[in-house]
Design a protein around this nucleic acid. Structure first.
Length: 493
RNA sequence: GGGCCGCUAGCUCAAUUGGCAGAGCAACUGACUCUUAAUCAGUAGGUUACAGGUUCGAUUCCUGUGCGGCUCACCA
């Protein structure tokens, strides 16, 4: 009869009216269920294992996902947060007139609560033989196709609830995400770290060099930036005397979107006093590998075509040597921008003219090295040019104690022995300001931070981990949008 | 921001060289007491993303716009 969306909605509204006219509330307050669908299935197994023949009455609640009418008996599948179970309604039970009228007006998508005996059908399907049922919420819109689910990527992200209802593997991705974050929190808490919260709104956005979002505070009548890193506030806390701190927080970067970049993403940063980057390497290895083992039962998992093995210790490579190995260029032999760029142009690398030396080295790294770093790898000892917050390596003028961890060609973590010399730190900020006054809205020098450091900061090892990318790895997702529940999309219309 | 690709019924997808826009699911009517992508018979459902253009005729060719995907740039 009807099929346009408006007509489908009208049908449901008519059903809603009929249900109300029976004196029933289509949106009642609560329903006391005795079991989730998952618990019900476990219970059935237990009963069968103890070879009892009695029928146990339980109640469950969920969303109707399928209706199969078979003449005088009907089957339904209902889904709750734990899974799915089949229901059977037989004619004898529905003999009462109101009940069978209500039954006729049930649709896929409605929530119901049912009470009945737990059993198994001839084909072995766990089933509840419904004795009583209650409508818990009437759905007015049709769900996506039951077999293929919702495929349209745009719709899946804009209407994530529909994605979650009809694509169960998506639910699993976000359950794993939750377990990863819980695992990290557990690890750090049990290793003496204090979880803290620092401001998202900041008068200057420091700790990284990314374009910030700007917002305005009305009563103070000034602009604030959304943080682009957690770093500078956490270091203030180290200065304040907390020896081990961490924050798991959202940060914001006003840059392009891609398969690996969302404007807001989740970062872990931890700082540990009296430690250096070697200690941090050990901790990162231990933390990540133990979280992975908790989740997948072993240190290995599949990502795309690769099996990744996180068994510690991970491969640790000197950055300079590794770049030489893959590109043939030793950046130490080209101490200035011009000579390095010339050398790179010999290899036909397209190099944007505005780049400073740090970016050129980064270009070498991402072009020649990163794609080869499939198994977990720690690259250590970075050029000072690209690391304004890291401490120099003893005996070197332009190498810092910094490392990054790579997996599947993705940067997973970034860490260093934190620079704690306030005079050196000021000089680095000044140099940075000079070479990169790119975004006028961004102030590079955080005077308050420099003042804090001038009071004295202990030697400290710091770490940053991109949580979304870790989740991508462990859930075998190629796009960051698949591990963020509500990724950034352009407003429609 | 650039390049390439896509947008057809509520959902998943077809449509030959430019020639009546079609199926499955969902919906509606009916049959059916163990089905499970139920089955069977029937009914209804379309501004082919939007705006123009070419043409006797456009889902199809062209231009523009919107949104999305991939990619490049940007992102230490």
């Amino acid at each position: 009869m009807a099929s346009r969306l408006d007509d489908l909605i009208q049908q449901r509204l008519d059903k809603l009216e009929r249900i109300r006219s029976l004196g029933l509330d289509p949106y009642p307050r609560r329903y006391k269920r005795t079991h989730t669908t998952e618990q019900a299935i476990v219970l059935l197994k237990q009963i069968e294992d103890t070879s009892k023949t009695e029928i146990i009455e339980i109640s469950v609640a969920g969303r109707i996902m399928a209706i199969r009418k078979m003449g005088k008996s009907s089957f339904m599948d209902i889904q709750d947060g734990s899974g799915k179970i089949q229901l059977i309604f037989s004619n004898t039970i529905l003999s009462e007139e109101i009940v069978s009228e209500l039954f006729r007006d049930l649709d896929i998508g409605d929530f119901i609560g049912v009470k009945g005996g737990l059993m198994r059908t001839r084909t072995g399907e766990p089933t509840i033989h419904v004795a009583e049922f209650t409508l818990l919420s009437k759905s007015l819109l049709p769900l996506p196709e039951k077999y293929h689910g919702l495929q349209d990527v745009d719709a899946r992200h804009r209407q994530r609830y529909l994605d979650l209802i009809s694509n169960q593997e998506v639910k699993e991705t976000f359950r794993i995400r939750s377990r990863i974050i819980a695992g990290i929190r557990n690890y750090l808490n049990s290793h003496g770290f204090l979880e803290v919260e620092t401001p998202v709104l900041q008068p200057s956005a420091g700790g990284a060099l990314a374009r910030p979002f700007v917002t305005h505070h009305h009563s103070l009548d000034c602009n604030f930036y959304l943080r682009i890193a957690l770093e500078l506030h956490l270091k203030r806390l180290i200065i304040g005397g907390f020896d081990k701190v961490y924050e798991l927080g959202r940060i914001f970067r006003n840059e392009g979107l891609s398969i690996r970049h969302n404007p807001e993403f989740t970062m872990l940063e931890s700082y540990q006093a009296y430690a250096d980057y070697h200690d941090v390497m050990d901790m990162l290895e231990d933390m990540v590998s133990s979280v992975i083992r908790e989740i997948s039962g072993e240190y290995k998992f599949k990502f795309g075509d690769n099996t990744i093995d996180f068994t510690p210790p991970w491969q640790r490579l000197d950055l300079r040597q590794t770049i030489i190995e893959y590109s043939g260029i030793d950046f130490m032999q080209f101490p200035d921008v011009i000579s390095l760029r010339n050398e790179m142009q010999k290899l036909n690398i397209e190099v944007a003219p505005v780049r400073d030396r740090g970016r050129l080295i980064d270009e070498l790294l991402s072009t020649f090295v990163e794609p080869h770093l499939i198994q977990p790898t720690i690259l250590y000892d970075y050029p000072l040019d690209m690391s304004p917050l890291a401490k120099k390596k003893p005996g070197y003028d332009n190498i810092v104690e910094r490392f990054e961890a790579y997996v599947c060609g993705m940067e997973l973590a970034n860490a260093f022995s934190e620079l704690n010399d306030p005079i050196d730190q000021r000089q680095r900020f000044v140099n940075q300001q000079r070479s990169r006054g790119r975004y006028e809205e961004q102030e590079v020098i955080d005077e308050d931070f420099l003042t804090a450091m001038a009071y004295g900061m202990p030697p400290t090892g710091g770490l940053g981990v991109g949580i979304d990318r870790l989740v991508m790895l462990l859930t075998n997702q190629q796009s960051i949008r698949e591990v963020i529940l509500f990724p950034q999309l352009r407003e429609k219309e």
